[in-house]
Amino acid sequence: MDITGNTVFIPGATSGIGLALALALKERGNTVIVGGRRTELLEKIAAEHPGVETVRIDTTDAGSVQAAAEDVIARFPAVNVLITMAGVMRVEDWHRPDFLESAENIITTNVLGPIRLIAAFVEHFQSLPDATIMTVSSGLAFAPLKVTPSYNASKAAIHMLSETLRLQLADTTVKVVELEPPSVQTDLLPGQADNDHAMPLDSYVTEVMSIIEGQPDAREIQVERVKFLRYGEARGDYDQVVAALNGSDPHGRLE
């Protein structure tokens, strides 16, 4: 993926990693369209960051995804990068069946949402000379945090989906890149924004942008901090990684 000159649509970018990445990409000379469910947040972003475009989208609603995609393609026919940022993370206890509603919502948002987005853009992207689908998994796709089973599973699914799509789309102009965040200081979980063991948001986005710029053909965007989780099995210390991840810090101090 080139660092500049793109038209980028980022659903789920009204806060956290998504918004920080959107602003960093805009600074590098890209046209950026931010998507989100809450109109008031979109209006606030547009007012505070002139030049950032917005569109309302709810990735849990198939009709909303299709309508938003049609709107984006109509207004920005050069759109050539999709970053499937929208996601949710919740603590669950599977000792009792009341986890089910949470689990269904996580899978709908984190797995069906990206699938719907890709379906809405993949044909358009194949008509372009160069396009990128950037999926968003997690270090937890590779080592489980005990208290977030559905989230871990959803991100493992995104990893394998990314691997497979890269094979299927190899005969097209569409690249598939997987962003693999560690624990970052955002509001993904309560208290995570103030968690000293999570990576500062600015540092994370700076390193991501550096990787994109320095490794434009990278298939996986991995900051150094996530490699502890990503390669535990390959290194042969997977059990130790899981034990460290599920220590005293509920958010995974070594993620």
Rank of each mutant, 00 (worst) to 15 (best):
V147M: 09
M89G: 12
D61V: 09
R75D: 04
M160T: 10
S102N: 10
E163L: 09
S162P: 06
D130L: 13
I57S: 12
I133N: 00
K146G: 05
T84S: 14
L100Y: 11
S150N: 05
M89H: 13
T135Q: 05
Y151H: 14
A78Q: 15
A74K: 12
L145C: 07
S150A: 15
A119D: 14
V122H: 08
P144I: 08
A131P: 03
I107K: 09
A67V: 12
R96H: 14
Q168Y: 09
T60D: 15
A68G: 08
M89W: 13
L165Y: 02
P97L: 13
L140W: 05
N105E: 11
L165S: 01
P129R: 00
T164F: 06
K146W: 05
H124T: 10
A67P: 08
M160Q: 12
I107N: 08
T132W: 01
L169Q: 02
E163A: 11
V147K: 13
P77V: 12
T109S: 08
L165G: 01
V91D: 08
T135N: 14
H124I: 07
I158E: 02
A86E: 12
L165T: 00
S137A: 14
A74W: 05
A67H: 12
V122M: 06
A68H: 07
S154Y: 00
A143G: 02
L169A: 02
A103P: 04
I57L: 14
A78R: 15
I133G: 00
A141E: 04
I107Y: 12
G87Q: 02
A157R: 10
S162W: 00
S102C: 06
S102I: 06
E104V: 15
W94S: 14
L100C: 06
V122C: 10
V81Y: 03
F76G: 06
G139H: 04
I57E: 11
E163T: 01
K146Q: 07
V136T: 08
V136Y: 01
V79E: 12
N80D: 11
P114A: 00
T135R: 03
A69E: 02
N152F: 12
M160C: 03
A69T: 01
D130W: 10
A68V: 07
Q66S: 15
M160R: 12
I83L: 12
F76R: 14
A74H: 11
E123K: 11
A62I: 15
V79C: 14
I133R: 00
S154V: 01
I133C: 02
K146E: 07
F125S: 00
H159Y: 09
T108M: 08
L145F: 07
S138H: 10
I118L: 09
E104P: 05
N152S: 12
F99K: 11
Q126N: 13
T148K: 00
V81I: 07
S127F: 03
T108E: 14
A119W: 03
A86L: 02
Q168V: 06
I107H: 11
L140E: 05
L161K: 08
